[in-house]
């Protein structure tokens, strides 16, 4: 008959073996360089709610160009600028938008992801995250020109973590530029469609 001590030791050993074995998988997305805390916002917004959204025409990761004006009259557009590929937080941002597709469909809206990376980098990064239903656009050459036009290009060449909602008439209805380092508590946010913005 086993003593309680033996039983405990056996169970513990089994647990350690099982769960250590599980922990050997490291994905590419675990290899993210952490730059440490960054200046929360490092740019000056150049557009305002109520203004027409500056058009852009950027290469996408599927050998197709992405032009904002293509959606005019057809879709509400949410533009999601992320700082850059392979940066903290960003890799867990677009997969959530991917899951929220039914919500976008419900409101006849679409999303465009924009990053300052070149197409090969953006392609590899989005592949590592898994397929996305929305296009990812490369704002690489001239570097960050679209981010610069909207006023969300940071001094180090990355973009802010920023969202713009554009209505079907091509008018900016909402702007949200985040502290690049952290998630903002949703309860402190203000509604889009009004004259309010976070900047």
């Amino acid at each position: 008959m086993k003593s309680p001590l033996k039983r405990f030791t056996w169970t513990t050993a089994l647990s350690v073996a099982l769960f250590r074995a599980r922990g050997q998988e490291i994905s590419l997305l675990d290899q993210i360089y952490n730059p440490g805390p960054l200046k929360p916002i490092d740019s000056r917004l150049k557009v305002r709610v109520g203004q027409p959204a500056p058009d852009f025409d950027l290469p996408g990761i599927h050998r197709r160009r992405i032009r904002l004006s293509e959606f005019r009259g057809r879709k509400i557009v949410v533009i999601s600028f992320v700082p850059a590929a392979w940066t903290p937080l960003s890799s867990a941002q677009w997969p959530g938008y991917d899951l929220a597709k039914p919500l976008f469909d419900k409101y006849d809206a679409t999303l465009i992801g924009v990053s300052v990376d070149n197409v090969p980098t953006l392609y590899a990064w989005t592949r590592a995250m898994g397929a996305l239903w929305f296009p990812a656009a490369s704002d690489f050459r001239p570097h960050g020109r679209v981010a610069q036009t909207y006023g969300v290009l940071r001094s180090d060449g990355t973009a802010e973590r920023a969202l713009f909602v554009i209505d079907k008439a091509g008018i900016i209805r909402y702007i949200d530029v985040h502290d690049i380092n952290k998630r903002p508590p949703p309860r402190q946010r203000r509604p889009p469609g009004s004259s309010l913005s976070n900047r």
Partner: peptide, 21 residues
């Protein structure tokens, strides 16, 4: 409509901090 989109988009930033590594 914008509020719902905003919720979807804004909340999208909410969960990401926990996923690194």
């Amino acid at each position: 409509t914008f509020l719902n989109l905003w919720l979807a988009a804004a909340l999208g930033l909410a969960g990401c901090a926990s996923n690194e590594g």
